[in-house]
């Protein structure tokens, strides 16, 4: 089953997801004015794929 999947096709999308998640985590650690507890956002960013980081960028920071 797994052999059938062409990883060179899927690699870019996985890499982008990792970049998006790392960038969100880095931003979250650096940010002082996070709305709500920081650990909650770290949890959301890591657990919810794609949507988590986007949610953080839209609603996670105060006055941004």
């Amino acid at each position: 089953m797994l052999q059938e999947i062409n990883w060179s096709l899927l690699m870019p999308i996985i890499v982008l997801q990792v970049i998006l998640m790392s960038f969100a985590l880095w931003n979250c650690f650096k940010e002082e004015a996070v709305s709500g507890p920081k650990w909650m956002w770290v949890f959301i960013i890591i657990v919810i794929n794609i949507i988590g980081p986007i949610l953080y960028f839209i609603a996670g920071r105060k006055n941004k």
């Binding site: 999308i13 931003n27 794609i50 986007i54």
Partner: peptide, 28 residues
Amino acid sequence: RNGKWIWLPIAFAILAMSQPLTMYYMPQ
């Protein structure tokens, strides 16, 4: 500085890629 120039293009790129890929791998 607030990262909009990074996360928005990436989010759209993922959105755009996922459609042809899911259709391609639909049988699996």
